[in-house]
């Protein structure tokens, strides 16, 4: 693995009353595409602003290539930012917006022309040099914002929900473009989003956050398959989360029966959350099933059916299946030990 470029060490950020970040530990490697994922208000923007230098940590340190930069002002950091609402300079045209950082560095006119020209090409805006930035579409403004940051050849590019304002189709396109740009340029991207699909499809590493704390760090596959708690599981995808009790290693009780599972290391009879993905539940005849219930709704979602199965004990199971049973049918639900995810209950606070 390549070397660590940004390292947050027990970083906390407290605004007057609010604890925005509560002891974050996070390291980011060179050339990595890292995504901060979490619901609104969980501290993603704050994390980014700390790395960018717009805020200083209340506690903890931020290292950049091993050196403490916690109090270094933004203009001395080799980091650039694509802001949430782009923050383009409306008194400058497209060319001058992109050239801004280069002019501050007092590069020669020739070099500026060259670099900006190349950048415009990269973001498909050649020919837009003289345009007023206000006359551009959302997607074009977005590209200018990215070009304006990238032209400075930062070590790390910070992007705060850069795609949030775009419509779905454009968003998909930009996701691809950003990803390929990152690969091609070999720059570390720290990307913020509250959209789990976006996070899973673009990132090398996903950092799931909640209430100023990191819930899980891992590859998209890890996060999806092995969520460490029900919050992550719930946030990452629609899941069935039910109360259970861990009888002993590899045995869990829920839905009125005991099930073999692959998890261990819990206390005896410890209450846990049991997470089961809808696509892992299969419809089987009711006679030989541990979980049974009545189909209460069926929706066809193009590729599969989404069904709700009301069990007798009040749990309603969400099931995704390519087969369907009509409403009112009594069915059984089968599942493999592999597909039962046991998680510790999220402690409050």
């Amino acid at each position: 693995m390549s070397e660590i470029i940004v390292d947050l060490k027990s970083v906390s950020k407290v605004y007057d009353e609010t604890v925005a970040l509560d002891g974050i530990n996070l390291y980011i490697r060179k050339n990595e595409f890292v995504t901060l994922l979490g619901p609104s208000g969980c501290g993603k923007t704050t994390t980014l602003r700390l790395i960018g230098g717009f805020e200083q940590p209340t506690e903890g340190k931020i290292l950049f290539e091993g050196k403490d930069i916690s109090t270094l002002p933004p203009y001395k950091r080799r980091v650039n930012t694509v802001f949430q609402r782009y923050a383009l300079f409306s008194h400058l045209d497209v060319f001058e917006n992109i050239a801004f950082g280069l002019r501050i560095k007092k590069l020669s006119e020739k070099v500026i022309q060259e670099k900006v020209g190349k950048m415009l090409e990269q973001v498909n805006l050649t020919g837009f040099e003289k345009r007023d930035v206000n006359s551009l579409s959302g997607g074009q403004q977005q590209r200018v914002a990215i070009a304006r940051a990238l032209v400075n050849e930062p070590e790390v590019l910070l992007l705060d929900e850069p795609l949030a304002a775009l419509d779905l189709k454009l968003r998909r396109e930009m996701q691809h473009e950003l990803k390929s740009m990152q690969k091609q340029l070999g720059i570390t991207f720290v990307f913020v989003t509250h959209d789990q699909e976006e996070a899973l499809s673009m990132s090398d590493t996903v950092v799931v956050m909640k209430d100023g704390r990191i819930q899980q760090i891992g590859t998209p596959v890890d996060i999806y398959n092995e969520p460490t708690n029900s919050f992550v599981a719930d946030f990452i995808g629609e899941s069935n989360i039910v109360d259970g009790i861990m009888r002993k290693d590899f045995l869990v009780d829920f839905g009125g029966s005991s099930f073999d599972c692959v998890d261990k290391g819990f206390g005896a009879d410890e209450p846990v959350d049991v997470v089961i993905r809808p696509e892992d539940l299969v419809l089987i005849p009711a006679e030989n099933a541990k979980l049974t219930g009545t189909v209460s709704s069926v929706t066809f979602l193009g590729v599969h059916y989404e069904m709700l199965v009301e069990a007798d004990d009040g749990i309603s199971w969400l099931v995704h299946s390519t087969l369907m049973e009509p409403v009112g049918t009594r069915v059984g639900l089968g599942l493999e030990p592999m597909d039962i995810h046991i998680m510790r209950k999220v402690s409050a606070g």
Binding site: G52, F54, Y75, R148, A149, N152
Partner: peptide
């Protein structure tokens, strides 16, 4: 902040 970010 964008201006600071770009080195001003």
């Amino acid at each position: 902040e964008a201006a600071l970010d770009l080195g001003s």
